Amino acid sequence: MHNNRRETLEFLEAFLPKAKGLEVEVVICPPFTDLWPAAEKLKDTAVKLGAQNLHWEEKGAFTGEVSPAMLIEIPCDYVIIGHSERRQYFAETDETVNKKVKTALKYGLTPIICVGETLEQREQGITMSWVLGQVEKALEGLTDAEVQKIVFAYEPIWAIGTGKTASSQDAQEVIGAIRKKIADLFNAGVSNKVRILYGGSVKPENIKELMAQPDIDGALVGGASLKPDGFYSIAAFNQN
């Protein structure tokens, strides 16, 4: 929950000229109130637009919610689903995540599904069972073709906004297990097409090491995305 309309436009004015030479796909996910002006600014650029959440119904008595029909009108390309903060503070569950994923796909939005464990769960040694359980429930009832369109983001909750970062080896271990889980649920062909990101205190200083891991396809960037120069440094990790 950062940046008003003016601040979002200032960010994009500073970032977009640099982004022209980037070799990676970049998605910006501002608050709902900034989506319309951001969409105007992103026209005719390669940078994609995403929302931070959506409701699984198209319309109805859901005061304060935003529907997929509203998002595609803007238009948005992506939507974050099940972010740890949504799960922690706003009663997001595996069941609501699954509903939102199905709705996003129905409306042509690419879901970025967040999964991850707390520090307590990691210390209890249940990281794998917890995270892989979230993955399985998120994909329940989906077809091979639908799953191939999905992006996952592994975000260890204990590493978000704390300055702590999972080691690149820790991140690879869990993300590799996520990819294997998808292969077990569907097949290796599907699993190899799913992009899996790491999120958790990603910054210019650690992006190269993270991206050197075989199963990490990208990053879900939090606080470091608020400054255009820092965010550019992360996106241009392989061009420096």
Rank of each mutant, 00 (worst) to 15 (best):
R5F: 00
R6V: 11
E13I: 00
A19T: 09
G21P: 01
V27C: 10
C29E: 05
P31H: 09
F32R: 03
A38F: 11
E40R: 13
K48F: 12
G50Y: 07
Q52P: 10
G60N: 10
C76G: 10
Y78E: 02
Y78N: 02
G82H: 05
E85F: 02
R86T: 01
E92S: 04
N98E: 08
V101S: 05
L105N: 12
G108L: 12
I112D: 04
V115Q: 05
G116A: 08
E117F: 01
E123H: 06
I126F: 06
L132P: 06
G133I: 08
E140N: 14
E140A: 15
A145M: 13
P156G: 03
A159Y: 00
I160N: 01
G163Q: 14
T165K: 01
S168I: 01
A171D: 01
Q172F: 04
V174G: 00
A177T: 06
I182Q: 06
D184W: 10
F186C: 06
G189K: 15
S191A: 15
R195I: 08
S201C: 10
V202T: 09
N206Y: 08
I207K: 01
M211E: 10
D215P: 00
D215W: 00
A219G: 07
L220R: 00
V221I: 14
G223H: 09
G223W: 05
Y232R: 01
N238D: 15
